[in-house]
């Protein structure tokens, strides 16, 4: 009996450990979704006191929360566009062009990723203040800060994709009567696009949930992470979990639909 149990455990140990790790990873998300339906007994309650649709039907009830979400989304979009455009150009320059200081530039683009956020945040604040922006900290300083810390990630992501792109594909396009412009849009861009898209999604999520740098450079503005931080001092309104759940399901939907799209395309051409 003991032997048979031992064998069963032996056969399934990897599966068991795997499931446990998955559970560990997803537990916080289950809690967020669950708590979005919570009807808390008091302001400071962290337990599930009762089920309600109220939070989903009135997501903007907590004062200032939806303003904070809107601000975070606006900054997220603009930072994504700025960082993706700049970072993609940087990645092309670093991979495709041989220039003096190229390897140094490569190392420097890594530095912001490696330096602690609190250091970057406080030095940015010092920079803004000494440059005379002390009274005008807000939307634009947040945006500048976000583009800056997203850039490195974009460069690294796009660079990886570009490095795997055979330069002979572009040469073949040129050989087949495509000029530089057509070569870029017909061959280079479509092939690098998955990397650019990944970089953009990464930028958005980095920007959307940044707290430390934002908190130091935001002046009077309140982004969603800052709102959550503030609310946590007084008791978190359950609507925060609604926003969290929506973000999660949106991400899940994007991942699944891109997977389905790719599989269908593969099947059509097979």
């Amino acid at each position: 009996m003991n032997g048979r149990l031992g064998k069963w455990v032996g056969d399934h140990i990897v599966l068991l450990v795997g499931l446990l790790v998955l559970l560990y990873m997803f537990m916080p998300i289950f809690i967020v979704v669950l708590m979005s339906f919570n009807d808390p007994a008091s302001k400071n309650s962290y337990s599930f006191d009762g089920f309600t649709w109220h939070n989903w039907l009135n997501p903007c009830e907590p004062i200032g929360m939806c303003d904070a979400v809107t601000l975070s989304i606006r900054i997220g979009f603009l930072a994504t566009i700025g960082a993706t455009a700049l970072g993609t150009l940087m990645a092309f320059a670093l991979v495709r062009h041989r220039f003096k200081g190229r390897s140094v530039a490569n190392i420097f683009t890594f530095l912001p990723m490696a330096s602690p956020e609190i250091v970057m945040g406080s030095s940015l604040l010092a920079l803004f203040v000494s440059a005379g922006f002390a009274g005008t900290l807000g939307f634009w300083t947040i945006l500048i800060a976000h583009i800056m810390f997203c850039l490195s990630f974009v460069v690294v992501t796009v660079k990886a994709r570009l490095a795997g792109l055979d330069p002979r594909l572009e040469q073949a396009a040129m050989d087949l009567y495509a000029n530089e412009w057509q070569t870029f849009w017909r061959v280079t861009f479509p092939l690098v696009f998955p990397g650019i898209l990944a970089a953009a999604l990464l930028s958005f999520s980095l920007s959307f949930d940044d707290f430390i740098i934002t908190n130091l450079n935001s002046g009077q503005e309140v982004t969603f992470p800052m709102y959550v931080w503030g609310a946590a001092q007084r008791g978190i309104p359950p609507q925060i979990n609604v926003i969290g759940s929506v973000m999660f399901f949106l991400a899940l939907f994007l991942v699944i639909s891109s997977e389905v799209f790719q599989r269908r395309r593969a099947r059509v051409t097979a």
């Binding site: 002979r168 594909l169 040469q171 073949a172 396009a173 050989d175 479509p190 092939l191």
Partner: peptide, 12 residues
């Protein structure tokens, strides 16, 4: 026109 050693067909 060229036929490349690695063919260089456009994968997309």
């Amino acid at each position: 026109n060229t036929v490349f050693q690695s063919y260089a067909l456009f994968p997309h």
